[in-house]
Nucleic acid binder design. Structure first.
Lengths: 343, 343
DNA sequence: ATAAATTATTTACCCGAGTAAATAATTTGA
DNA sequence: TCAAATTATTTACTCGGGTAAATAATTTAT
């Protein structure tokens, strides 16, 4: 296809017999040139295989066609899944997603934003690590680049936030657990990384009190992102200590629940609904693997299609309008109960 | 920190009282300028918060400081994990990783390479999707950009390949299963996406024959990347059909095994080693979640630290030498047996 | 202390595009 | 059909840097 190699617009223009700026226009919008010149260009393109130099293109643009997508941890299938959905939506909209994982570290999150800043993205979708983030620096970034937060909210940062209504979802599962058996104790980390965890904790307490039960928090140590590991180790400890005030455990998230289920199995404790089972375990999130755990995990699903779609929609409209929102928009989507075998 | 905003090297040079090219040199290597000028620059930098424009920087470079990292599917925790390790190594080497997932699609893989090409990366680490890839186009890419393959090999493409020795690892687990109980049947997909799966199949057959047993392949349909789902659905079918020739099943990969374990559980079939168990299930890969499945999955671990380290080392040396390897290097790392509860 | 060798800085030119203003071509209206 | 209005193309300049060659400053050797 490419006889003499063409390396820039100048040369392509020479081949076509038209001027370079016309070629430039063509690449920015093929419909903006006359049909006849368009044909000349496409003819030349067919036999010469040339593509514009991205760096030269972006050098002078105020911002590029790139949209940054920053997630706390790609190793977590939940974020891998939502990132994938969002990437797809961004591509469909004609933009180029740049996926960055903060690997669970706040410094990494900041350095991701730094890299993004120098890339001059049209906008950024950010799922912040949470409480330990350097909020001032994130706010600074968001004031320079149109930014939409999702999953975890940071007060007053970014143009909008889309996430789950933890209060509603925790209510849902606490209600279910209470009416189908003993009221649950709450299994969580003492100092969680994610702000959603704090909302879930307080929602659990409120829900229990509303139903006239005594809340019971089981708070375990651990500050890493290895939730299954933490759930397993700490779960083993509490399951063998025989001090549980209930036969039902609600976990702050599915990954902890997966670890806990594993611990129960190892310790010969039968989990589930039936008469032969002595323990019920429920989670939160509907993690991609929850359905394949044994027994399959009863949990509450986050509406992460809605979160993805709305986040992308919002950043796209911010980009195309070129304006910022007058008032910050916070949207919390409802979760839905997923009843399976474990509770 | 930044009184009058500085927007380019020209202005920074003016502030420092030195010429622009010296600043340019400084940014490419702070040690390449005299200590005194370095101090002037850093002093100015301290109060002016300027960073060079990436696009202008890269416009003229033959290649950038970016290293592309293309994996088949980030939703698979195995690839998410190895990607994370590789990213870290790339950063430590002073390069910038660009993570791209092919989302399981060959077209996407090609379009990822196309984007990468226009970014002029210093090199690329590619875990190809496998058999259905458009090999000619990948070969073309690899002839333009230094490329190292990992995980899945494509004949004669790229400068080097690092992956697992499927024959050794399958031998290992078949040996173990045979000497600790009945010889295994092999559970796999009829037309796998990944070339490793084909090697595992033939290695299984060879291993069984070597030990004097009749190989038995259970090949199920399914062409998606939802291996757990496939393992579960098809597993349910074969488990309830009561036509298994052995009480031991070796799965082509852990994700299938996870689905299969789930199917066994749902059907009330007890899996494990003990006398009360009627089925043994083993996998391959040592997937991050395998240890938390119930029962925990006996499997063979890929040495993916070695794969990651060697891949990165090789691409870095290719980059710094500026040369290509005279002979393509293929390295297969040995797997190690991970004995857990399921077999 | 001075010339030679070395190292650092500057001058001058280049890269591959975007874009405003000027010009040319086409279409529209009477 | 011809001038006016509209649309497309070209001219000319910009952007923010890299880099080779020329020059200047240091260091080293005598």
């Amino acid at each position: 296809m490419s006889n003499p190699k063409i390396k820039n617009m100048e040369e392509l223009a020479a081949v076509c017999g038209i001027s370079r700026p016309s070629i430039s226009k063509y690449f920015n919008d093929p419909d903006s040139v006359r049909q006849s010149t368009r044909e000349k260009i496409e003819e030349a393109l067919r036999k010469h295989d040339y593509r514009p130099n991205i760096y030269a293109i972006n050098q002078n643009r105020r911002h590029t066609k790139d949209i940054g997508l920053v997630v706390p941890n790609l190793t977590d299938p939940f974020f891998a899944g939502i990132a994938r959905t969002i990437e797809q939506l961004i591509i469909e909209a004609g933009y180029n997603p740049l996926l960055l994982s903060s690997h669970g570290g706040k410094e990494h999150e900041i350095s991701n934003l730094d890299s993004l800043r120098s890339i001059k993205p049209a906008g950024v979708l950010l799922a912040p690590i949470g409480r330990v983030s350097f909020n001032e620096r994130i706010a600074e970034f968001a004031s320079e680049v149109p930014t939409v937060l999702f999953d975890a909210n940071l007060e007053d940062i970014g143009e909008a936030f889309f996430g789950s209504d933890n209060q509603q979802s925790i209510n849902l599962i606490v209600d279910y657990l209470c009416r189908s058996g003993e009221p649950p104790v709450f299994f969580e980390m003492k100092t969680p990384i994610n702000p959603n965890a704090y909302k879930r904790r307080s929602s659990y307490i409120a829900a229990m009190e509303r139903l006239g039960h005594e809340p019971d928090l089981i708070q375990v140590d651990g500050r890493s992102w290895d939730f299954e590991e933490i759930g397993f180790c700490e779960g083993s400890r509490i399951l063998t200590s025989h001090q549980l005030s209930s036969n039902t455990i609600l976990c702050s998230n599915d990954r902890l629940a997966i670890g806990l289920l594993s611990a129960a199995f190892e310790n010969g404790i039968k989990v589930g609904l039936g008469a032969e089972a002595s323990l019920r375990i429920a989670g939160h999130d509907d993690h991609p693997f929850s359905r394949f755990i044994c027994p399959s995990l009863t949990t509450v699903a986050q509406d992460y299609d809605a979160i993805a779609e709305n986040s992308v929609e919002t950043i796209l409209s911010l980009i195309s309008s070129g304006e910022r929102l007058k008032t910050r928009k916070e949207t919390y989507f409802e979760g839905s109960l997923v009843m399976r075998g474990s509770a």
